[in-house]
Amino acid sequence: MTTDTTAAARSASASRAPSAVDHPLSMAEVAAVIARDIPAGAFVNLGIGRPTRIADHLPEELGVVLHTENGMLGMGPKAEGARIDPDLTNAGKVPVTELPGAAYFHHADSFAMMRGGHLDVCVLGAYQVSERGDLANWHTGEPGDIPAVGGAMDLAIGAKDVYVMMTLFTKSGAPKLVRQCTYPLTGIGCVSRVYTEVATFDLLPQGVHVRETYGITLDELRSRLDVELH
């Protein structure tokens, strides 16, 4: 990472950000992009909701082991029909299956392996992420919204790498990668990478680095975000 921050240098650096495809990605395609970046043999937790879909793009030969915080390593795909077992669910309480080599453990062990830095990657959804890697994904803070944190705060500070999978803009067009989160925080300085439908960002100590773009120019990204992009 260069320390030269002149506009010209930024521009030169910007032009090198690879443009992977010429159209914005569907969330299924975002899931595939994330899956591509997960190292072989990694222990991975996929958060409730969209990140769950990443599992569909992890080939068996990659040997990725999925952790679910309700007490299992080696989680298999969603259970259907006769394979549904009420004693075997994922963190979203959806019936799942077990793979050969699976292991069960109680909740304190499950969160100890998370908090203790044994998980390689965790992928979470988010309302907002700040340029310094602060995460807001548990509570809108609006009156009448019942707060529910689940394992989000433990996951945010636990895994070696915390990736966020989200749309870059709200339905009304407001950016979700921001200078400072306005939603209640889940964790501080914990997110290392953000995957969205138009770009993937690395959150580095030096600032936000655009890793890839999908159907958007860097100038357009800059005009729609209030964070400095490197």
């Binding site: 109680h106 909740h107 304190a108 969160f111 100890a112 394992g151 433990d154």
Partner: peptide, 22 residues
């Protein structure tokens, strides 16, 4: 019950809930 103010709620992160009981 919560919205009618008939029940108190203390939200604890899941891992802390487990570890505090441990």
């Amino acid at each position: 019950l919560y919205r009618e103010g008939k029940i108190e709620l203390e939200v604890v992160p899941q891992g802390n809930l487990a570890e505090r009981m441990r």
